[in-house]
Design a protein around this nucleic acid. Structure first.
Lengths: 200, 200
DNA sequence: GTCTATACTGAGATAGAC
DNA sequence: GTCTATCTCAGTATAGAC
């Protein structure tokens, strides 16, 4: 019995995905997952704080991707274009993880508890993004709004991407941004007296 | 002991809020809530599918408000202005329920499980809004994007409203919309403005 | 690794409203 | 009588305490 923590963790993850795919999230007990992975139930909870969390290991690096993406954008780029560039940089890892995201989406669609966790993780990530923007010097009021909106656009794009199997993600992202920018009315007051656009 | 279901439900709700306020969500058991309301634990679960749900009874009508608000906007108004008008119409009921929202926000901030439920409810509501827009004839692709974004703006406004006690909500909403509209780059319409290629 | 609290479920019985 | 709300009882799974 391998004592390597990482191996056990991966076996647990694999076992969980297999059982969930076969019988659905709710019909599988943590004891069964542990048994299939060859460890005790206690070990499951040592690696994952709760049953749902085993599903989100693949998305764990999302926060890192976002931070790195934003860090790679020069600090003098205005918030919206900066976020748009950052989103573009997150696209490749998202595409690489397409299958994992798909698996999670399927289970979430059938399991309210998993959906809740996913929604909460998105909300948390938006908060992290806002903090990163603030650290770049963006006004807190703007940061939160831009973080929410841009992540919403990306989430929307991911949705239509998944609905169109076989297509790359980037065009969906471009289309979603263009769509939103085209839908908004022109600002009536203070027409862009602020920062000049350094990127489009 | 009155057999009216509604009275029992209200007593349960009141008891729960009282106990949560005193000791926090996690430190209160459903049995205690039921006992304080003068019913059994089983009765609690007949009125509320789970412990968290007792907190969201006040927000139950949010969906109705949104539907009514959208229904009151003429069908020929474009999606974004329509949503903006609808949001304006939701502001008064939100203000009237300020205290309830505040109570919920305080508990949610201290209780991850409640936060998750709140995030999931928001996601669900956005889906409902998108469906309402589609029923108005908005293209599904646009509907989802507008629903997400506008609700995000409202959520942002509610956040800054709560941070500024004593102020009315409407100015925060107006400011959030203006801010977003001012932040976005203008669409480059000369590039045929059609749908970007979705290489299929 | 062991033990336990607590959220939650199901079936069947009871009691009041109509 | 029907119907619905409630109660009693017995149980399981998660998660946290020890």
């Amino acid at each position: 019995m391998p004592r390597s923590g990482k191996e056990a963790r991966e076996r647990l993850e694999h076992a969980a995905l297999e059982l969930f795919a076969a019988r659905g999230f709710d019909a599988v007990t943590t004891a069964e997952i542990a048994a299939l992975a060859g460890v005790t139930e206690r070990t499951f909870f040592r690696h994952f704080p709760d049953k749902r969390e085993v599903l989100f290991d693949g998305e764990r690096r999302l926060t890192e991707w976002v931070s790195e993406a934003l860090a790679s954008v020069p600090a003098d780029v205005a918030p919206w274009p900066a976020m748009r560039r950052a989103v573009d940089r997150i696209v490749p890892p998202l595409e690489a993880n397409r299958e994992g995201g798909e698996r999670l989406a399927v289970i979430a669609a059938a399991t309210p508890a998993v959906q809740e966790r996913a929604a909460a993780k998105q909300a948390h990530l938006i908060g992290v993004i806002a903090d990163l923007l603030i650290a770049r010097g963006v006004a807190p009021e703007e940061a939160s709004l831009v973080a929410r909106t841009c992540w919403g656009v990306l989430a929307h794009a991911i949705g239509s991407w998944r609905a169109a199997p076989g297509t790359p993600l980037q065009p969906h992202v471009d289309r979603a941004f263009d769509l939103l920018e085209g839908l908004l009315p022109r600002p009536h007051r203070r027409a862009s007296s602020g920062q000049p656009r350094l990127s489009s």
